[in-house]
Structures are given as C-alpha cells and as structure tokens.
Design a protein around this nucleic acid. Structure first.
Length: 614
DNA sequence: GCAAGGTC
C-alpha cells in the first residue's frame, strides 16, 4: 500500500479523485492500491519550555536554550487550560498506522517551506524511518497532479528546505519565548508582555504612526478658487500654487477679472487638454487584498473575513483562502469561461457575466510563474444556499472580483482646463467613458481627489467666460492617517520595501511581515495583549502598547529588518549553507536581547507606575 | 502565561 499525505483534507481529496480512489475511511481515503491521508496544518509544534525543565517563569531560567528541541502535539484551549487537541491525536494515530503499513510514502504537503516542515515534524515525531518521495505541485488541477506524480522527487532532495524551515521555527521560539519572559518578568506587571519577530515590528508600526499623527503640527496654506460659468453650467478652477500667507493669496485674488470687478467675461481659456486613460482591471483577490476590501466596504476585521472565507471554503463555495497569490495558471484559466457562465442568471452579476461570456477575457491575472503554493481566490461554481448576510457579502466580493479581473479596461476621459484670469487657474475633471470592469460593482472611484469636478462642460481654447465668484480657500496639511486593519495589512505585506540594505530588501520582497495565513491572528494577538485597541475602524496603541514600544523601539526585535536578515540566511540554508552558524547567531542574539530586556524592562515598570499614579 | 507557522 502506498500512502500519500497532504497538508489538508481538501488536497488529499483532489489527489484521490485523480487516482479514482473513493472509499472514504476515518481520516483517509482508499482505493487503487493507495491511501490518501492528511494533516490539518501543523499537527506538531516545538515543545513548550517546561518540557526542557524550565518550569514556571523565572529569571533563573533565562535565557532558555534547549540543547535539543522536542515536538509536542498541538494544544487547544479547554476549561482545564491548554490540552492536547484530541482530533490531532486521533489523526496522528491514523497516520502512524498507515505509515506502518506503507510500502511507499509520498509527501504531498504544500510546496513550500512550511509544507515541508508540517510533514517532517510528523515523520520525525512518529519515528518513521521509511524513505519517502516528494510531490511538488503548485496547482491542484487534474493535469498538474498527474504531471507531478510523473515527476516525483526523492524526499532527501528537500532536506535543505526542511533545515531552513526548522531553523525558522526554532529561531522564532528562542527569540519569542525568551524575550517575552524577560520583558514580562522585569516589568513585574504579572500580565504577559509578549514580544516576537512579527508582532513587535507590527506594534512598532502602529505606535510610531500614532505618535507621528498625534504630534503632527498642521500647516495652514491658502489657495485661490474661481467659479467659471459656461452657458449656465458652473465649474471650479484652482490656483496651481499653494500660498503660505493669506496676504499672498489676496494678491492673486485681487487680480482675478471677475464679474463684480467689471469684467463680464474675464476667464480666458488658455488650454484644454482631454485625453482618455485606460485603467486595467484589478487583479484577482488573494487573502490580504480581500481582507482589505472587506474592511473598507463592510468594516470586517481581518480575522472575521478569514473566518467567513474559511467557512465558504469548507462549504466548497470558494477555492483555498489563505493564498498569497493574485494570479492563476493557464490550466485554471481554461476553466474560467464555464465558471463565468454559471453566473449568467445571477440577479446582481448576470448582466456582466453574460457580457464576459461573449467577449474576450483579460489575461492580466493569468501568470503561472506568479502562482506560489496556491492560486488566487475564485468561486468554485457550486451554488450557495441560504448564506448569512456576512458570508454572502464576502462571497459576492469573490464573484464580483472574478468578473472584474477578466473584464475589459475602464476608459476614463481626463480633462484639464487652464484659465487665465489675472493669473492662471486649473480645472480638472474625470468622466468614465467606457466603464469596462467598473460596471461590475458600478461604484464611484474612491481615488478621485476632492478638488475634482465630476464632469466639466465642453469649452474650447480661446473662449472668454464670465467669472461670477472667487474666494480664498484656507487649508491645512494633513498627517499620515492612523492605521486601520486595511492599511495595516497592506503595510505588513509591503514591510521591508524601504530597507536601505539591498540584500535584506530583496530577501523580504516576496514575504513582508508575517504570512497571509497569520496576519489576522497577529492583529488579534496585539489586541489580546492589551497593546492595541480598535476605535471605530482605527487601530490605536494603548498606554501599555506605547510603554512596550518605548522600551523596545530601538531594538532589532522591533524592526522589520530582523525578518529580512533571517529570510536571507534561511534562503542560504535552503541552498545548502551551514545550519549551525545561523543557530549560533540566533543563540547569541537570544542571550543579548534577553539580558537587555531584563534591564530595560524595569523602565517599563516605572513608566507604568507613573501612568497609574496620574 | 509566552513565538510564528499552519488549518479545521
């Protein structure tokens, strides 16, 4: 019996289907001489400190540097505290039995670092010694699966990948566990003051933006506006320059040849520039872009959106949700026309689905090279039944985005008018000529600047028009806005883009901070720790969050660069570099950060007392 | 009581 093990049940089912295996058993599928089983993500994790003899939280234990890491079964919360997840225990027993009977093991966990780790942790925990082969595919269409099985690799080809994954895991444990205990113990607050490679830079981003916003001193500036009358249709034109003082603006205002000043047609059209602009359709959604969209449109938190999507996925209504790719491969694209056809009678989307079924589809979201472990989110075409309002809203965003992504360019007419009236004034307007993909939701364009006219009347160069009104506009410069969930998710994705060191920037370019699957939980962790709170849509640091930020803000653990450095080294390990060197560096860093926090954390206690006594 | 990673 050959055993195939996947990262999750959905993948095992897909593969079993290709093989024509359909006997469902408890925890696996059987048929054609194969068994197809699965994990549920990470079943095992690095064992907690007490399993190495580090009992309780104590300065004497720090830094905790286990000579050899152990694995333990994933825990869940119960009324008696954290206990082994019984469903995980059960699945591990099933996998053990199948491995024992196996003549061959084929690893079909996701094609990436964590997928490798998920399997290897199981394999080593079960003390399995049988050789295994690796299936390495990035899409789960029948053809991709068949091709993958024709090209199975020896499992040992991925030893270096496992090493890099194992290092990542250990490093996060060492730095996170030690830094957390060091800060919590030295601050003496009795509450958990957690720190970590991802959560702490995230907290730092929220705090620094908050302080920047709070300490921002707005500058007043002035503009001059005139109202121009074209056969009764009014439009507004603005001075191109901003003026520092009201007096400067007044000079410009006084020169305006308006009607009241005795000029019946004192607005001279110097130039009219009208050009169409193509706006290509947006890319399909990945998890992050969908979370951002749902936050903007419906105010859902990242965590809510993930959970709604997971629910839709389990009901087989959408494809795998925790993807970081906004693209699909050609194989999936081939199925898109029939998918779109299924929405031809849809009350909201029917018209656009019908349009698409009769027109050429945009291939902007089609790029097999940009599909990583999973492709972009699509509906499956299954018919939903009685979805809750929230689930329906998310489902509609997935379907709507599919229609948008394969739709045609939106053509906008952008008009710029230059008017001379004493000095120069500019009016601009944008009119949608052909809506293209924008017809799907038919919503106003949010990027439109507040100074724009919705539409401008037809005027020609050389015309002289009346200027019935003029005014000085008093304005203020604005700070960068506070983070909300949408802008924070975006910032986490792009974190590292501004690192000076080119190599580190490169190492982070495809990752950012955290992963699509974990970013929502990172935000929730910061809230659970009472570092951050939601206020309307914004994410604001609490006093506690700011106090922690003050202690760590200049430390490496608060910088996105730390992830960049690690990623660079992990990539080197993946291509064969020494594991030991990196592990030694991490141990050294763990000692340093632990010692520093044991000292500087006391400052936090003082800061806290000061806060409490006020 | 603690990380970050994955998923039901």
């Amino acid at each position: 019996m050959k055993v195939i093990i996947a990262e999750k049940p959905s993948v095992a089912r897909e593969i079993a289907k290709v093989f024509g295996a359909n006997q469902k058993r408890e925890g696996y599928i059987e048929g054609k001489g194969y068994t197809f089983t699965w994990a549920f993500g990470h079943l095992l994790q690095l064992a907690p400190p007490q399993e190495y003899g580090f009992y309780g939280w104590s300065v004497q234990n720090l830094p905790m540097l286990p000579a050899k890491f152990k694995l333990s079964i994933r825990k869940v919360k119960s009324k008696d505290g954290m206990i082994e997840d019984p469903s995980v225990r059960k699945q591990l027993d099933i996998i053990q039995k199948l491995f024992d009977e196996a003549t061959e093991i084929i690893v079909a966990t996701d094609a990436g670092r964590e997928g490798e780790l998920i399997f290897r942790y199981i394999y080593y925990y079960l003390k399995c010694k049988k050789p295994f082969k690796r299936l390495w595919i990035s899409s789960q269409t029948d053809e991709a699966i068949k091709e993958g099985f024709r090209n199975l690799k020896p499992g040992t080809d991925y030893d270096a990948l496992f090493n890099s994954a194992h290092c990542r895991s250990q490093s996060d444990w060492l730095v996170g566990m030690n830094a957390t205990q060091a800060l919590s113990l030295s601050a003496g607050t009795r509450s958990v003051l957690s720190l970590g490679r991802v959560q702490t830079p995230t907290l730092a981003m929220i705090c620094s933006r908050y302080l920047e916003n709070k300490n921002f001193v707005p500058q007043t500036y002035y503009q001059v506006a005139i109202q121009v009358d074209k056969d009764g249709q009014m439009f507004r034109a603005i001075s191109p320059e901003n003026y520092k003082t009201k007096e400067d603006a007044q000079v410009i205002l006084d020169q305006v040849q308006d009607v009241a000043a005795g000029f019946p047609a004192g607005g001279h059209i110097l130039n009219v520039e009208a050009k169409p602009r193509k706006e290509p359709p947006p890319l399909l959604h990945d998890l992050s872009s969908l979370q951002q969209e749902a936050n903007k449109r419906k105010g859902f938190t990242a965590d809510q959106t993930l959970s709604l999507l997971q629910n839709l996925y389990e009901s087989k209504l959408v494809t795998y949700p925790r993807t970081g790719s906004r693209y699909i491969g050609d194989d999936v694209f081939a199925t898109v026309p029939s998918l779109i056809d299924k929405y031809k009678d849809h009350p909201q989307f029917g018209k656009q689905a019908t349009f698409l079924s009769e027109n050429k589809l945009s291939k902007r979201s089609v790029n097999a090279k940009k599909v990583t472990d999973h492709h972009a989110i699509l509906p499956t075409g299954e018919v939903p039944y009685q979805l809750s309002d929230d689930k329906q809203a998310i489902y509609d965003m997935v379907v709507g985005r599919m229609l948008e992504a394969f739709h045609q360019d939106c053509i906008k007419e952008i008009t710029k008018i230059t008017i001379q009236s004493g000095s120069k004034f500019m009016a601009s307007g944008t009119v949608i000529g052909i809506p293209g993909w924008r017809a799907v939701f038919n919503e106003p364009d949010e990027e439109k600047k507040d100074e724009e006219n919705a539409s401008l009347p037809k005027v020609v160069q050389g015309e002289n028009l009346p200027v019935p009104n003029k005014a000085i506009l008093e304005k203020q410069t604005k700070p960068k806005p506070l983070y909300n969930e949408a802008s924070l998710l975006k910032a986490l994705e792009t974190a590292g883009k501004e690192i000076d060191d080119e190599e580190l920037r490169y190492a982070m370019k495809d990752s950012g901070l955290g992963t699509p699957a974990t970013r929502a939980s990172i935000i929730e962790t910061l809230i659970k720790r009472d570092y951050v709170q939601r206020e309307k849509k914004n994410l604001l640091p609490t006093k506690m969050g700011l106090a922690v930020y003050t202690v760590v803000k200049d430390q490496k653990i608060a910088q996105a660069e730390l992830t960049g450095t690690w990623e660079k080294r992990l990539e080197e390990i993946r291509s064969g570099a020494s594991v030991v060197d990196f592990q030694e560096e991490i141990k050294t860093y763990t000692r340093t950060i632990t010692n520093e926090l044991l000292i500087s954390g006391r400052g936090l206690a003082v800061a806290k007392e000061a806060v409490a006594s006020k």
